[in-house]
């Protein structure tokens, strides 16, 4: 980690997204309970916790992907650029152009590799050279060398790890402010996982990344800040080193040392 964050630095400094008392309900049943923490610009923030603790649900509230799940309601504020993302005047389509997302399972479109990357900028009226943008995005996702001679082959012909990097390239082509990643390595083998973790380090200088992960070693390795959730409540939030070495809360300690979850 090139810039190991120091725990003396107040975390709220230069945050890009602020969660304030965010509660999320599935048809009235509470899934996330009054969670507040900031997401710092150009850092990697990981959200960890046992299965069903609401971490994916929380992540999806950061770019309005919960809108597609019937019966979900969000209380509290998710401020981004001074605006509440869940405000009635906010257009979710615009939100998702600024805050991209990579999913648990690679989900490339059944189109060519090139079109997978070019599609998002295309529908959003990108005017400059598409070839350059595609190359640049694939390079950023560390996939260019592997696919440069087969850009017009189907994306479905790629391996799982390559498909996931293609999905990352696809998200990067939109030049998002923030990249949300929902367990992006859970369907991948260790080598592909290492590829993607290396990639996240590279991307940090340009993007803010929020990653949900099941894998605590992964969170410890890659993230600057960590939020630990249990049964929808934020148990502890802080600098990753501190969460993993000197947690303040006993539940956090039990979780990160593998005593449950």
């Amino acid at each position: 980690m090139n810039s190991t964050p120091n725990e003396q630095v107040p975390l709220a400094d230069n945050s890009i997204i602020d969660l304030q008392e965010v509660s999320i309900f599935y048809s009235g049943k509470i899934a996330v309970d009054k969670v507040s923490f900031p997401i710092a610009k150009n850092k990697i923030t990981s959200i960890i916790g046992p299965s069903g603790c609401g971490k994916s649900t929380l992540l999806r509230s950061l770019n309005r992907m919960n809108d597609f799940i019937p019966g979900v309601t969000v209380d509290g504020m998710v401020t981004y650029g001074g605006q509440n993302l869940h405000g009635s005047e906010v257009d979710p389509v615009e939100v998702r152009r600024c805050i991209g997302m990579v999913f648990q399972k690679p989900n490339p479109f059944p189109k060519s590799i090139y079109k997978n990357v070019a599609w998002g900028p295309g529908i959003n009226g990108y005017k400059d050279s598409m070839d350059e943008l595609v190359e640049q995005s694939l390079r950023q996702a560390a996939l260019w060398e592997e696919v440069k001679d087969r850009l017009h082959e189907s994306a479905l012909s790629l391996s799982g790890g390559q498909q996931q990097r293609l999905c990352i390239a696809r998200a990067l082509a939109m030049a998002p402010d923030v990249l949300l990643m929902d367990e992006p390595c859970s369907a991948l083998d260790p080598i592909s996982t290492a590829h993607i973790e290396d990639l996240l380090f590279e991307l940090k200088s340009r993007y803010t990344i929020v990653i949900v992960t099941h894998n605590m070693q992964q969170a410890a390795r890659i993230s600057d800040h960590t939020a630990f959730l249990e049964t929808g409540k934020l148990i502890e939030f802080g600098v990753t080193d501190q969460i993993f070495t000197r947690p303040q809360n006993q539940r956090t300690e039990e979780y990160v040392t593998g005593r449950f979850g």
């Binding site: 770019n63 998702r96 997302m101 999913f103 529908i123 959003n124 999905c167």
Partner: peptide
């Protein structure tokens, strides 16, 4: 998951339906 991938790129319902 394909629809979600498309929506996450800032596509409208119409774009997702007709193009994906």
């Amino acid at each position: 998951t394909l629809r979600q991938g498309a929506y996450a790129l800032g596509a409208t319902s119409y774009e997702v339906t007709t193009q994906v």
